[in-house]
Amino acid sequence: MNIFRLAGDMTHLASVLVLLLKIHTIKSCAGISLKTQELYALVFASRYLDIFTHYVSFYNTVMKLIFLGSAFSIVWYIRRHKLVRRSYDKDHDTFRHYFIVLPCLILALLIHEKFTFRVVMWTFSLYLEAVAILPQLVLLQRTRNIDNLTGQYVFLLGAYRALYILNWVYRYFTEPHYVHWITWISGLIQTLLYADFFYYYFQSWKNNVKLELPA
């Protein structure tokens, strides 16, 4: 474990807590894409299949349970909770996210480190996570006034993977044989997809104006 990875995990945890805070306290999911939440639930479900068969550490197991539990409860809240679901903007959350699940699965079947169920599913989760934010970014372009919690959520979610890139650089230089191109390229693409969001987020913070993404 290194500080970049710990900072990345804490930033990821913070993004989840900000979203749960928003949904649980003000009972609103305005501006939040259900499709991105469903894709993330699938990412964690396919990545953490080995949570009970390959013990890594207490920390690792606890964090996996938190990410799994929060992802599925957020999907449940937006789909089922009578108050929260009313604030879901289904008319604008129209990205065909099923069209990205299959290509990620096919790609994982073609390009992976090892052709085993566990590794292919883990690779699938990396490819899927790289594009999981797309429905959310599309929705933000269509959302007029993006509230602070939503902006912070997306920012933290993008920042966590950027910190992971620093972690991979650190591990590459400190651990022999630590080379994982699939993880690195997926993570880089994932972070690059946030580039314009980061730009507008920074502008809104610097000029102290409401966050707004151009359509």
């Binding site: 990875r5 890594v56 550490s57 690792n60 651990e175 044989h177 080379v179 994982h180 993880t183």
Partner: peptide
Amino acid sequence: SRAGDAKDEL
């Protein structure tokens, strides 16, 4: 997990 294995990450 193997040394340098990426699956020790979240």
